[in-house]
Design a protein around this nucleic acid. Structure first.
Lengths: 371, 371
DNA sequence: CTGAAAGCGCTTACAG
DNA sequence: CTGAAAGCGCTTACAG
């Protein structure tokens, strides 16, 4: 026993033997003990009696292999890196929840790094993770530019490349849910809040909207399309966009927002402008974050299966890690959204009662300024 | 150059030399190169010319030390473990954001593990993190039972022990903010929603409330005290508790909830019961999560500086790691809450003023007198 | 069925 | 100012 270390402040401190000590204790070679403990006993036809003895001793002496040493030698660290834009943000953490669930069941640990849309960090992190010997990387809403010598799974990225497997939402179905819903409620003048330029989903989702709008015969008025600014936190970008939208003074009866945060921001701005939701303007969100249900009015929204996307990302990555294959130019794995109908949408108002009828102009600018 | 590996699918794959190759390339020993690269050049009086050459070559050849090998040898991994109850939950991720900010600036990476209040995981994780050779652990709202041979910082734990430094909120100040606010608004019949039994903060916060209530002469009616159930997600526990509270049929004019989620749940239940917030019942939350501001009505709440608590936790842990000291029986580090007054609180309803024979107006006492 | 020895890629006494 | 050699704690050819 190595017991010359640490002035024990409590006898509950765990003393751990290393492999050498364990082997000596058992009167076996490190090789044999290692084989049993790393689960390759079968391949070496180790007698089950020996196997049992080793297992029992390991448990009794509380042996835990030094993962560093094991990884260094075996070239597999059972560690993956997860890149997210922002750790303290609902989207990433929902995905992270799913990732963790799968990873930890397989004995994998993960490093989280968040780049906050800083391009220098986006460039550096894959390299830093590599020097930490991760077996693979999951990029959540983050684009990795260089090809890496390890498997990569991207959640909601849309740069298809051979070395990366993409997990994406079925954007067409998502757009169909929302636009079909609004169309049935007789909305024709629909405003769109596009996502931030840095979000991987922005373009794909917008393309899907355009395509579905064409199918449904909805005309998209460019003056009713506005994009979230890159800066600002929480509901702020949605507020800013909606204020700008109102200033254009073009009539609309519904808004399809890029995400719930933007939808919630939009609703607060509309309310401040004296416009009722959903009586005068309907609002559809995206994601179904927690606040969507508790918002007033509760948000009608397209739900992304974020946890599920995380789970699929993780299990796909594990598969890739456990295989020799090099080329992963498969089709993206596409998950399905669901539609959650709550109270932020309603029938399109009659022209006379609409917020933008000529009589009732929405310009209550005093409320909108100064924020 | 080791270039026999990997059928390069793209020439952008990063080839990295190891220390040996770098040393050979420079005509120097691994020892010298290692010294320069690990920053101990000064201690060994390495000529600045040599130093510059090494640095230049390392940059040019894109040398990155294998962190596994370095850690195995040096016994310091520049990695910490962070234990949280739940990854996809606002409280933990806010703290995590602060932790990350500090850690990554120092070149530290972190593993996240979430135990979801499972006692088996709570017991195992410290050990598993240890076998991953972490230099220290931050436990967020999680109690670590055994003494560990590495530094530990606990955010919002209240088991004071020598080997652990605690980061906590000033619960007395928090209670004072809330109760003082309600008292001034003439509330006397206040209901309290206590936290889940598994939350480290539940007891400390409740004690502070009792103490401050005594100071302010507020009587706590046991029939107006209810505790959040351990199961249920989001606003569900708050809803359940409030429903049970209403069933007791004891009059109250205000609720002080354990957290914002519970407060939001309470408000939805009150609304469904036809009780107006804040006209008939005022509600005060705790935490100031994102939804607090966007809720309807926007929540009056005690804000915890969660990011800051994370930052302090991380920098404290780094200090502990970089020192030899063994005994950390310091006082806990106490951070200050702030009070955010929004629209979920208002004057106690008229009926209650009539019921109590006192004056119609609250005493405008100066801020937070006493301590 | 089991073991002795080499080696993963670094850092660190020890030596000069 | 610089280097040769040992060693961190494992796994893995190689051998029998």
């Amino acid at each position: 026993m190595t017991s010359k270390d640490s002035k024990t402040t409590s006898d509950r401190i765990v003393t751990r033997p290393d492999l050498k000590e364990l082997a000596r204790h058992l009167g076996l070679s490190q090789t044999t003990v290692s084989r049993v403990l790393s689960g390759s006993a079968k391949n070496h036809r180790i007698s089950s009696e020996t196997e049992q003895r080793v297992l029992a001793a390991a448990a009794k002496l509380n042996y835990k292999a030094n993962v560093l040493a094991r990884s260094l030698r075996s070239k597999r660290s059972k560690t993956v890196g997860v890149m997210v834009p922002e750790i303290s943000e609902g989207y990433s953490t929902a995905v992270l929840g799913g990732i963790e669930e799968v990873l930890l069941l397989s004995g994998f640990f993960y490093f989280v790094v968040s780049h906050r849309h800083r391009t220098d960090l986006l460039r550096e992190y894959p390299s830093l993770l590599l020097s930490r010997a991760v077996d693979g990387i999951i990029a959540v809403d983050s684009t990795i530019e260089e090809d890496l010598p390890i498997p990569v799974v991207a959640v909601s990225d849309h740069h298809h490349r051979p070395s990366v497997v993409n997990i994406e939402l079925d954007h067409l179905l998502a757009a169909r849910y929302a636009l079909d819903h609004l169309t049935r409620l007789q909305h024709r003048e629909i405003a769109f809040i596009k996502g931030q330029s840095f979000s991987s989903d922005t373009l794909a989702r917008w393309r899907a909207i355009c395509k579905v709008a064409a199918e449904l015969g909805i005309e998209i008025n460019p003056r009713l399309v506005i994009q979230l600014e890159d800066h600002g936190l929480g509901t702020e970008p949605g507020r800013t966009a909606t204020i700008a939208l109102l200033e254009r003074d073009v009539r609309f009866t519904a808004i399809f927002a890029f995400n719930d945060l933007a939808a919630i921001g939009a609703i607060t701005v509309l309310r401040e402008a004296g416009i009722q939701v959903p009586a005068q303007v309907s609002v559809v969100g995206f994601d179904d974050i927690l606040s969507a249900a508790t918002n007033n009015p509760p948000l009608t929204t397209v739900r992304q299966p974020l946890q599920e996307m995380g789970r699929v990302a993780a299990s796909t990555l594990l598969q890739m890690i456990h295989t020799e294959k090099q080329d992963w130019s498969t089709h993206p794995i596409r998950l399905l959204p669901t539609f959650v109908e709550r109270q932020s949408t309603a029938w399109a108002p009659q022209a006379s009662e609409a917020a933008f009828s000529d009589s009732a102009h929405p310009h209550k600018e005093s409320n909108l300024q100064g924020n």
